[in-house]
Nucleic acid binder design. Structure first.
Lengths: 220, 220
DNA sequence: GTCTATATATAGATAGAC
DNA sequence: GTCTATCTATATATAGAC
């Protein structure tokens, strides 16, 4: 049972394990509150190894943030590519009831679903939320602003949103962050206001997850 | 120059000073990352006194959160009362269809302005954002969820929003939090995407701050 | 109401063995 | 690639003086 010495694995793989663990711990305790020792324990390795591999705590957090933003960008990029491959804009769109612009209602729903699937990873969600409150930190703030603006440009230039639509999409996303960060979903069915807000938010954003997932199933 | 011993002041006043200082420090460093010593220095008193007055760090954070939520609730309550006193449709006709009525956009703008004025206090903004990412903490999470739902009920029952309007208002608020937390406003005029997003967000939310402030001036 | 002194615990980082 | 041992700094909280 003496699993004191971890299996020897390639550094790239270990690096990913550490980032995954760090994402959870930074999310739960914040950048300053998280300790490299907690991260090391979560990753199943020694504390000095974490420090050695990333050179320090700040570099590690930037690594976590970069990984989260990359995953978000990849998910959105792939979603848009699939949407275009499916006959993109108004083509095969059967005219959905939501939004003034049915042409963009479809991609909005697809991106919304992709986003919710991503932030079900609470580590990713919370480390993003932490970064959003750290604009004052030179390196972390710059990285977070850059990532946020990259997503905005993707919405504008690739998904075809106008400024108003892009802003609305981002606002809905920030509300989703808050409801999940707060764990307000725990009050679903217990509190009338919580139940109404959750149903309204998830229905509007996803137009029922199952419906969209059903569409994906039909394509397969 | 030996200002080692602070002036002797009433505990209620000192308590408020500590909460104000704690709001800033908790906001910048997070709950776990903030230290009672940093808070004490920011308040100009000794660290043990901070601990003694609040009984501990967790109580202190709950105090900060309670104060922030109270300020928000008071600001919104007063804004709604003023709106009704100014002769809103809802005030004169209980059965007034608030839905998509243009006159109803008025209370949204007023509440939005009140909100932006509040979160210009970065300590308040960031401590709220921290709380929104702490749903997993038993006492802090419960307090934060309760406060968020209280605001939701106020929008629904007092401001006359329907579920969709309330959700949209909250979403816009969460986007404002993010843009300010990120300090994305620092990129205004420097980055095209940032400039567009900021102009779109603040124009939509406030319908030009000056316009509303002008209305207030006319009443005076 | 406010402090100094301090006990006890834990932080991030470095050195060097295997 | 991974560890143990350890240095130095700093954390929260308590005791007790003024």
């Amino acid at each position: 049972m003496t699993d004191k010495i971890s299996e020897r694995i390639p550094s790239a793989e270990r690096r990913e394990q550490i980032l995954e663990a760090a994402s959870r711990v930074f999310g739960e305790r914040g950048y300053f509150g998280a300790t490299t020792d907690q991260i090391a324990k979560a990753a199943g390795i020694s504390q000095p190894y974490v420090v050695r591999m990333f050179g320090g705590k700040e570099n590690l957090f930037v690594g976590v943030l970069t990984r989260s933003l990359d995953r978000l960008l990849v998910a959105f990029t792939e979603t848009i590519a699939q949407w275009k491959a499916d006959g993109s804009p108004a083509a095969t769109d059967p005219g959905y009831p939501i939004g003034k612009n049915p042409k963009h209602g479809e991609i909005g729903r697809r991106l919304g679903l992709a986003y919710v699937n991503l932030i079900e990873d609470r580590g990713l969600l919370l480390s993003l939320m932490q970064a959003f409150s750290m604009g004052q930190d030179p390196s972390i703030g710059a990285k977070a602003r850059g990532g946020f603006l990259t997503i905005y440009r993707l919405l504008r230039e690739e998904a075809g949103f106008d400024p108003e639509e892009a802003r609305g999409f981002l606002a809905e996303g920030m509300l989703l962050n808050t409801l999940l960060g707060l764990r307000l979903t725990d009050d679903y069915g217990k509190d009338d206001a919580a139940t109404e807000l959750i149903e309204c938010t998830f229905r509007t954003k996803l137009q029922l997850v199952l419906e969209v997932q059903g569409d994906e199933g039909e394509r397969a």
